[in-house]
Design a protein around this nucleic acid. Structure first.
Length: 561
RNA sequence: UGGCCCAUGGUGUAAUUGGCAACACUACUGAUUUUGGUUCAGUCAUUCCAGGUUCGAGUCCUGGUGGGCCAACCA
């Protein structure tokens, strides 16, 4: 109830119009149709959220269909990865389908087309076919095989299927219109010969249907009502409809193709080719490198499915060119993580603080709140002692009043602990700060309720007790490219815009409770950002990935100065 | 013989289908805060241009301008 009346996107308007025009809501069905030739990226996430979102909105089934018509590129590994990603996003498909399940049906229909004089076997090489296709402004010319007798077409096609011919020797073409202003209608190829094993049909077939002949018919077989794809397929719609015309029965649902603009994310690239290049050149460590815009990369970085879904929902869907600022994704990750991530303390660039008036052997276990946004998250104990680490950035020998942190003679609150004052600084011969000597106010203990504890001091710092700290490798990820649109500069390669500082690895000091943090667990390192335990992490070597920093208004003030 | 698609703040989407241009992000102010986080309050547009229809146009019409897609036996 009380759910906000959300405005509809143009696809939802189309569905609503169909419903008003009498299309039965029960017959609505959608599909997400990836080719299993690579990993899913954030662009696919939008499409997944669109299709499965429609399914949820209309209580309609959504199929997961693998468009596996090209055995040269497809592998079972990708099928598995895609299923994992869709599930991780939190969606449930109705049927798990494969275009390869329809090879026989497609073949039977193709024979009908041949018999109807609407398809023929072409026996020229591909270069010849391309040359005869014409150009967008010039009509093509008919193939010399275009009027081959039906019986001969049937016989040749049969032999193609039986493996009698080498690759490239023949194809099956639809006989449409070599003068069509739409290049795709100029007798498109329906089948090619490929003597390759398919990851599902193995060597059952050596002729494989092409996209156009497969996609619409697969939608029809599955009785998909609305077949949504990206804008570059818009010219395919005419062909999609032509192929459908050849097979549909009036009593069945006739699928409808509609196109939307793919989402582009700033400071990254999303084409499979370019992502592959990043992997192959070793710019990143793999498809699930946390800097990759792949779903697996985002997952490994610590992004939540909730954040990704909210991101997809707020950027919406439309038909115009777009570049979504990656800041929107960051916002949604912070928004979700702020609610669910337990707070902990970690020092990533440590400098030692020595509390001169604290007993050398003393240690106290102080109470710390796990998440101020969620009281039910409770409290934990953290150790305090004479020697602590704080962030090197959090101390200056002198600074103006805008600097809320520790400076000589100044006071600061140690989060969940005491108020301290910096008295003295010890340096090495080169002037590097080795340790900061402080005194603490024993009455100022957090939560004690004493007047001293209630004193307002401007800054609060995070810290970790030296002797209790656990070490961890912390990987600080930043955007992969320095330019918002690395692949949109004519004459310049996107690789030129790689951010040389996209990964910085540091040794951090963490509060001891993190010793047993399990891979995948997410935390907020207070005042720093959100971090996720990497899959490679273990008790002997902890590894954390930075998901996203906290908003940092201090950094902006500094930048301006 | 070219065809098709698109144009609304810095960014991404809305606009009851012809009726006060709204939401989110970013940026900037300020308040609160034992995270310079969170939260709260506020600021930032004459809808690509020119005509037309209309009491009334972001929306409809005409003509421009600018951008995108299409000539794999890829999807």
């Amino acid at each position: 109830m009380a759910e906000k009346e959300k405005s509809l996107n143009f696809i939802e308007h189309i569905v609503e119009e169909d419903l008003v025009a009498g299309f039965s809501k029960k017959q609505l069905r959608f599909r997400f149709p990836p080719e299993p030739n690579g990993y899913l990226h954030i662009g696919h996430a939008s499409s997944i959220c669109l299709n499965f979102g429609l399914g949820l909105r209309y209580d309609a089934p959504v199929n997961l269909r693998f468009d596996d018509t090209n055995p040269a590129k497809e592998e079972q590994e990708f099928v598995d990865a895609i299923k994992e990603d869709v599930e991780w996003l939190g969606f449930h498909w109705d049927k798990e389908c494969y275009a390869s399940d329809y090879f026989q049906q497609l073949y039977d229909w193709a024979i009908e087309l041949i018999k109807a004089g609407k398809a023929y076997v072409e026996s020229q090489p591909s270069e010849k076919i391309a040359a005869q296709k014409g150009t967008p402004t010039e009509a093509g010319t008919n193939s010399p095989f275009r009027d081959r007798p039906i019986a001969e077409n049937l016989e040749l096609f049969q032999k193609m299927k039986e493996g009698a011919f080498p690759e490239g020797s023949h194809v099956l073409r639809a006989k449409i219109d070599m003068a069509s202003p739409n290049m795709l209608m100029r007798d498109p190829v329906m089948y090619r010969i490929l003597h390759r094993a398919h990851h599902r049909t193995n060597t059952d077939w050596c002729i494989y249907p092409l996209y156009d002949w497969t996609h619409g018919e697969s939608d029809y077989i599955e009785q998909v009502s609305h077949s949504l794809c990206t804008l570059e397929f818009a010219p395919h719609r005419e062909l999609y409809d032509w192929f459908l015309d050849q097979v549909v029965s009036p009593e069945d649902v006739r699928p409808k193709q509609r196109e939307f603009a793919r989402r582009n994310l700033s400071h990254t690239v999303v084409s499979k080719r370019k992502l592959l290049e990043l992997v192959q050149q070793g710019v990143v460590e793999g498809w699930d490198d946390p800097r990759m815009p792949t779903i697996s990369g985002l997952r490994r970085k610590g992004c939540t499915p909730e954040a990704l879904r909210n991101f997809a929902d707020t950027i919406g869907i439309a038909k115009r060119e777009n570049v979504v600022d990656v800041a929107v994704l960051d916002f949604h990750m912070r928004e979700d993580l702020n609610k669910i991530a337990p707070r902990v303390m970690a020092v990533l660039d440590p400098v030692k603080v020595i509390i001169s008036n604290y007993d050398t052997d003393k240690e106290e276990w102080l109470e710390a709140e796990n998440n101020p946004e969620n009281p039910e998250a409770g409290f934990r104990k953290i150790p305090f002692s004479k020697e602590l680490y704080i962030e090197r950035d959090d101390f200056r020998e002198s600074a103006n009043r805008k600097f809320f942190r520790l400076k000589l003679g100044g006071e600061v609150r140690l989060k969940n602990a005491y108020i301290i004052r910096a008295e003295e600084v010890r340096k090495d011969s080169e002037g590097n700060i080795l340790e900061i000597i402080c005194t603490y106010d024993p009455l100022s203990k957090s939560g004690s309720g004493s007047p001293e504890s209630l004193r307002k001091v401007k800054g609060t710092l995070h810290w970790v007790s030296c002797k209790h700290a656990v070490d961890a490798e912390v990987r600080l990820y930043d955007r992969l490219f320095t330019d918002p649109t690395p692949d949109q500069h004519t004459g310049r390669d996107f690789i030129e815009f790689i951010n040389p500082d996209s990964l910085k690895i540091v040794e951090g000091k963490l509060e001891p409770g993190l010793k047993t943090a399990a891979p995948g667990a997410r935390y907020q390192f207070q005042r720093l950002g959100y971090f996720c335990v990497d899959k490679s992490s273990g008790p002997e070597q902890l590894v954390f990935n930075r998901t996203v920093t906290l908003r940092d208004t201090w950094a902006k003030i500094e930048e301006k100065a």
